[in-house]
Nucleic acid binder design. Structure first.
Lengths: 150, 150
DNA sequence: GCTCCAACGTTGGTGAATCCAACGTTTCGA
DNA sequence: TCGAAACGTTGGATTCACCAACGTTGGAGC
């Protein structure tokens, strides 16, 4: 009952959902530190990365790509636009939509952020070999695909 | 630029941290549904499970075991105590501490919750074979151990 | 053409999970 | 004995995730 041994193996800490959540929590913490260096948050990075990878898109499309709710996309895009990293322009072909595009500064920031994130991956996966990292990636990808139906 | 294909493969969605976070998000959602059936939340379950597995403990110890901040343990234990699932008693050997113990009702609830969580694991890992589930568990466990130094 | 429904952007709000600072009390080591 | 450390507690902050509602716009069916 003393505080000396926090590493007693038990059932809770062997459930996949516990492992996933705790590992994800560590990942989130590492990512947050990386984000802080750019004065951005997770939503900002996801949106910038999606724009850098797949090009301009409507807000609703961005939300679907990034797994972010439409209403949260609004606020995040407001931030990014306010900092000159993206531009919000009405879609002439569909007046319901806004077309969000990266500015040059936004593309730069996305690139720099990508470097930061890459270093975080290395730190996160430090104890795993290259083959193990691939294995983990494959397993998680399959889980994600299976649950992607929403 | 249309909304028909949300499954375009791209870099963001192949980073381990993205996969971990998204998978964890699905796990959290599935768990939340399970918790809701018991009218509990994640913190409650973690504390009950830790008590059921390792026996009574001080609040600070529980926090370390479960990865929950001391101040959040207070509120969660308040809830659990208010519902008669745990008892909070001063530690006669150390008057700074409270000893938290499961009641009979709390042990029952922990057991039932364990069943629910077990079903959630199955749903979460549905696409994986037994060997793959073990593999995932091992990889995540190693990651967690590596980052456990705080 | 007109009607109805769907999609869009937006506002506002809710909740869970995480974390931090500070405080008074109690314990323990130097 | 004295100061540092641990404990429980209060209060607050942030991030992520989700939902309901509204007015506007587009499209499909009649």
């Amino acid at each position: 009952m003393e505080s000396t041994a926090p590493q007693s193996p038990a059932g809770l800490r062997t459930t996949p959902s516990w492992l996933l959540n705790q590992t994800a929590a560590h990942a989130t913490r590492l990512l947050s530190e990386g984000f802080a260096a750019h004065d951005l948050r997770g939503y900002h990075y996801r949106l910038l990365a999606a724009l850098a990878e797949d090009g301009p898109a409507s807000q609703a499309d961005l939300g679907r790509r990034c797994g972010i709710d439409r209403s949260d996309v609004v606020a995040a895009i407001n931030d990014l636009a306010g900092r000159g990293l993206v531009v919000r322009a009405p879609d002439p072909a569909d007046r319901r939509r806004n077309v969000i595009s990266l500015t040059a500064a936004g593309a730069d920031e996305a690139h720099r952020m990508g470097d930061t994130i890459g270093r975080v991956q290395d730190e996160l996966l430090a104890p795993l070999s290259t083959a193990e990292r691939d294995q983990l990636t494959r397993l998680l990808t399959r889980l994600l695909q299976h649950h992607a139906r929403r």
